[in-house]
Design a protein around this nucleic acid. Structure first.
Length: 256
DNA sequence: TAAGTATGTTAAG
DNA sequence: TTAACCTACTTAC
């Protein structure tokens, strides 16, 4: 949307005023994402490259619209404007300009991202196979595998009938590769659809004659945020707990 | 009006 | 292991 356009940037909130000033008048020439980290590559009129690093964290959001951009509502950290659109960023955990070296360092701290076509699942599989840490915790470790969060963790483990508490090293290689393959498909779908849907066709609301999910996160899922509700497969109440400092949901019957 | 919640990460203790 | 960060929205009172 912003690609190849010269952008006008500002920080209505003021917390990124210096960065917005440096970006003003640059053109977006590339984008890159690794896990939950987003990078914008800009080029100044002088030809100087600038990288913007954004991480939405827990509350960050983008919102976009057609020009003219309305007066900013709430805490807008960074606003972009081009002739064709505007884009607002609120509440990010990170919004900084970084050097190419700093960008390299960030990539080095992250494991393979199932959404990147060149990603190699082997190092993550090696980490799993050597670790006594629960698989539900390893999947949240961004240095093991990048991009999985609490929702995909819960859903992929349900789909493969794996107890989130079982040690990583109790999974064999084929099981790890099945997790990786399922994550690739689920996450690629999520990018296309703009929401997280993980239920198989036979468990959709239409197929089961149940009402669609009412949840502000949208998306049809098996266990995520379904604590105490009946498992869509076996009817056992979905259990909830905390693992890796995030809410965990699982079916004690299907995943044992 | 206040309290609680959230697809997250980092640093301090 | 806990708290801090940060924003918008929902629910409780």
């Amino acid at each position: 949307m912003l690609h190849d356009s010269q952008v006008r940037t500002c920080s209505p909130q003021g917390r990124f005023a210096a960065g917005a000033a440096r970006l003003a008048g640059t053109a977006l020439v590339s984008t890159d994402a690794h896990g939950k980290h987003l990078f914008h590559g800009y080029r100044t009129p002088d030809g100087e490259p600038l990288w913007l690093h954004v991480h939405l964290g827990l509350y960050g959001r983008f919102s976009a619209g057609d020009p003219p951009a309305p007066p900013p509502v709430g805490q807008v950290r960074l606003r972009w404007r081009t002739d064709r659109c505007y884009l607002d960023l609120r509440g990010p955990a990170a919004c900084h300009l970084v050097t190419p070296d700093e960008k390299v360092d960030l990539h080095a701290r992250l494991g393979p991202d199932p959404l990147r076509p060149d990603a190699d699942p082997s190092p993550a599989g090696d980490r799993m196979s050597r670790s006594r840490v629960p698989v539900g915790q390893l999947l949240m470790d961004q240095s093991v595998i990048a991009g999985v969060g609490a929702a995909y963790r819960a859903e992929v483990l349900f789909r493969l009938e794996i107890d989130p508490h079982c040690p990583g090293r109790s999974l064999d290689r084929a099981t790890w590769l099945a997790i990786w393959k399922d994550l690739r498909e689920l996450m690629a779908y999520g990018v296309r659809a703009g929401r997280i849907d993980t239920v198989r066709p036979e468990h959709t609301p239409e197929a089961m004659g149940r009402p669609p999910r009412v949840d502000r996160h949208g998306g049809e899922v098996y266990v995520y945020r379904r604590a105490s509700l009946p498992c869509l497969v076996c009817g056992t109440p979905v259990r909830a707990g905390v693992l890796a400092a995030r809410n965990l949901y699982w079916c004690p019957r299907c995943q044992s």
